[in-house]
């Protein structure tokens, strides 16, 4: 549906977006993730035709944003970083105006406005002046504006900024709901948010694409810490001794004991290894039943920090080969804590 090719945007000597390419299929939810100033908003502004690219092309449904801006703009609803609100209008007046400029048919307009106000839960504020609304409500009015006319493609720049946790959940639900019929691109600097609603996550930093994958795969690939957390019923000394016998274990550390008779340990081993089987048999040998065992994964937040670290080094990952392997691992039901996010 959207194809971005070799996008470059320079401001004088500063390169805001540096050779970015990606595609989004119809119905997908793409999450842009990156620290502040990574080029997320710039990329979105280029896709919506607000600013032009220095190099590269953006096509939406086969139409070039640069060649046919008006046609493309009809297909896009956009919530910019600062919601573009006319503060001296009431919510209803504003949405009515937006419906007009987005060429919503007169016959459908009233119905659509009340539907959208319901969906974004701003109906009770319909006749208030926008300048009197709280930040959260302003954000929702901005969101309502982006949905107006039900465009095929909805682009949301940090849609949940300024909202309280309950509102964030509501907006996420709304985005999930919308994703059934729309293609959505959203940006955030909050990992959790992106992983909660997106099919694909793109992490960009300093205008460059760092990595792009499904959120669960990201955790799988980059999250390996080479750590296992284990609870064993038995005597701590013999358990530790047995575990240390396993070749690849580099460190065994006992955590604070909470329940008498149960040893809780953290094992360190070489990254990308799986030693759970060995641990199982080692414990079998000393007849100490394992009550709990979990491979430790980095949270997506940590991964985000890891890939956007500012040492300037580029993290190289050979993805093409790993992808297949990963799928089979998934099938075996590898225990990850990505689901907690």
């Amino acid at each position: 549906m959207i194809e971005v090719k070799n996008l470059v945007k320079r401001y004088g000597n500063h390169t805001a977006v540096d050779d970015l390419s990606f595609t989004v299929e119809k119905g997908q939810v793409l999450g842009f993730l990156g620290p502040n100033g990574a080029g997320k908003s710039t990329t979105m502004n280029i896709i919506t035709g607000y600013i032009s690219a220095t190099e590269g092309t953006v096509t939406v449904n086969g139409l070039d944003v640069f060649e046919e801006p008006e046609e493309v703009k009809k297909m896009i609803g956009y919530l910019p970083e600062f919601p573009p609100l006319y503060t001296d209008m009431t919510v209803r007046e504003y949405l009515d105006f937006v419906a007009d400029i987005k060429r919503v048919k007169k016959s459908e307009k009233g119905q659509m406005i009340s539907e959208i106000m319901d969906a974004t839960k701003i109906t009770q504020m319909a006749d208030r002046l926008i300048k009197h609304l709280s930040k959260g409500f302003k954000q929702r009015v901005g969101l309502a504006q982006a949905i107006m006319g039900y465009p095929e493609l909805i682009i949301l720049d940090e849609p949940t900024v300024g909202l309280d946790p309950k509102q964030i959940n509501e907006i996420r639900d709304l985005i999930r709901e919308l994703s059934k019929n729309h293609t959505i691109i959203l940006s955030s600097h909050i990992m959790q948010e992106v992983s909660a609603v997106c099919d694909i996550v793109m992490i960009i930093d300093k205008g460059k694409l760092v990595i792009s994958d499904k959120p669960e795969n990201l955790s799988e690939h980059l999250g390996a810490t080479g750590e296992i957390s284990i609870s064993v019923k038995g005597d701590s000394e013999s358990v530790i001794a047995a575990l240390k016998k396993i070749d690849r274990v580099t460190k065994v550390e006992e955590r604070t004991r909470t329940i008498e008779g149960i040893v809780e340990l953290t094992l360190n081993f070489g990254e990308k290894d799986d030693i759970r089987e060995e641990v199982f048999y080692a414990m079998c040998d000393i007849k100490a039943p394992i009550l709990e065992m979990q491979t430790m994964k980095m949270s997506l937040e940590d991964i985000f920090l890891k890939v956007t670290n500012h040492t300037g080094e580029v993290i190289q990952l050979d993805y093409s080969t790993d992808m297949e392997k990963n799928k089979s691992e998934d099938a075996e039901g590898v225990n990850t804590d990505a689901g907690d996010l």
């Binding site: 035709g49 896009i76 956009y78 910019p80 600062f82 573009p84 400029i101 504006q145």
Partner: peptide
Amino acid sequence: KQKTDQLLLTSPLG
């Protein structure tokens, strides 16, 4: 100033 030009310029209006 209010950045509402962003709304106008990303709408199908010329």
